[in-house]
């Protein structure tokens, strides 16, 4: 399993950092501290994918960066509405997922992505979605992004 974790973590971190930078103008770098943030959580969202492999991507933002993420995407100065913040979180998860899958499964693999679904906490999400195959943590301009990839064993 450590090899699988490593082979998935690198493309996952790259897809997440590129998405945060290009879509939301947020600078992301490998987190100084290990583990998933448990305090000051802004939101958690997950979306399922189906195709040559099945699983889900989980994204948690913490440290108060969700309003900045949404306002940057929309080009606003103030904090957007809560529905817009939730929508922005879901869209970022969707773009990370769409970008990491071809890096893992190859350029010809076709996947269907599900609708982003909010979760109350990281443990609830990971328990509901199954075993985490890879997990990455990024420091993002004073906040943090934790991203996990869940891959279900082939049937």
């Amino acid at each position: 399993m450590p090899d699988l974790m490593e082979s998935l973590a690198t493309p996952l971190a790259a897809a997440a950092a590129e998405t945060l930078e290009q879509l939301a103008y947020l600078f992301a770098e490998p987190a100084a501290a290990d583990g998933v943030a448990t305090e000051d959580v802004d939101g958690i969202v997950a979306l399922a994918f189906h195709g040559p492999a099945h699983g889900a991507l989980i994204l948690q933002l913490s440290g108060g960066i969700l309003p900045a993420l949404a306002s940057n995407m929309l080009g606003l100065d103030g904090a957007p509405s809560l529905p817009d913040q939730r929508d922005a979180l879901g869209e970022v998860a969707n773009v990370i997922c769409g970008n990491v899958l071809p890096r893992i499964a190859g350029a010809t693999a076709v996947f269907a992505l599900g609708v982003p679904t909010p979760y109350p906490s990281w443990p609830v999400a990971t328990e509901a979605l199954g075993g985490v195959a890879a997990e990455v943590h990024l420091d993002v301009e004073g906040g943090r992004a934790d991203i996990a990839l869940v891959v279900h064993p082939a049937a």
Binding site: N94, V95, C97, G98, N99, L101, P102, R103, A107, T108, A109, V110, F111, L113
Partner: peptide, 9 residues
């Protein structure tokens, strides 16, 4: 305008 990365699609 999509996240789509599959060359097939």
């Amino acid at each position: 305008v999509s996240t789509e990365g599959s060359e097939t699609r």
